[in-house]
Design a protein around this nucleic acid. Structure first.
Lengths: 110, 110
DNA sequence: TCAGATTGGTCGTTTTAATGGACATAAAAC
DNA sequence: GTTTTATGTCCATTAAAACGACCAATCTGA
């Protein structure tokens, strides 16, 4: 990810917690960083970034770590339609395939 | 993520669904890919990968997209201690700071 | 206690993600 | 049907992730 613009603060916090929780989960299972890194097929330094919630690490790495910890189920529900409150009005089948901005005044929110 | 070794299949599936859900959520909100890309500070091509659940895209990008959609709360709970069934026995304070493998027979699970 | 092992951090290098532009396709709006 | 615009896709270039090796710090089991 391009790091020039800063990440939203709430996101940073969420990721930091995620990393800490991952570390705690690893410790509970008594898996060393070296062993975990091997299983994820990633270097120990990358795993370290994961446990700090570093935003630059790929989702694939995070997801695989969670999988090995047995905690990967929730990933699929992160943006599940059922949990999206904005989706009240439109049901899945009536979803337009594209977004169309009206000629004047587009959807930009100030 | 280093792509040489394949990703676990369940993980691949989960990510694919995540991408599809993200796309659906964007459509519901009538946000164009171009506008969304601008807001996340990434290119349209990267956003496209996100909507396909590409594992190689950084978690930071995914998280920011979810944040803009208003769906970022769950990230912090992905590996929350309360949801970790293996954590039954150890409570957070008694967590060892390091893992120690017994001299013979380490913790590797076959 | 204390020796051995794990972990944290740094650095130079390699590999890969992310870019951005151009073009084709397809879907809305009219 | 026509026009207009969003989206899909490809590719060369560039910025950044991931590596791996090392050292220092510190924990922990014996």
């Amino acid at each position: 990810m391009r790091t020039t613009p800063p990440m939203p603060l709430p996101v940073k916090r969420a990721l930091a917690k995620l990393g800490a929780d991952i570390k705690a989960a690893r410790l509970r299972r008594r898996i060393t960083t070296t062993l975990m890194a091997e299983r994820v097929f990633v270097s120990r330094s990358t795993l370290q970034k994961v446990e700090q919630g570093d935003p630059s690490v790929s989702l694939g790495v995070y997801a695989t770590v969670l999988f090995i910890l047995g905690l990967s189920e929730r990933i699929a529900d992160l943006a599940d339609a059922g949990t999206d409150s904005v989706g009240l009005q439109l049901d899945e089948e009536r979803l337009p395939k594209r977004v169309r901005t009206s000629k004047r005044s587009d959807a930009r929110q100030p």
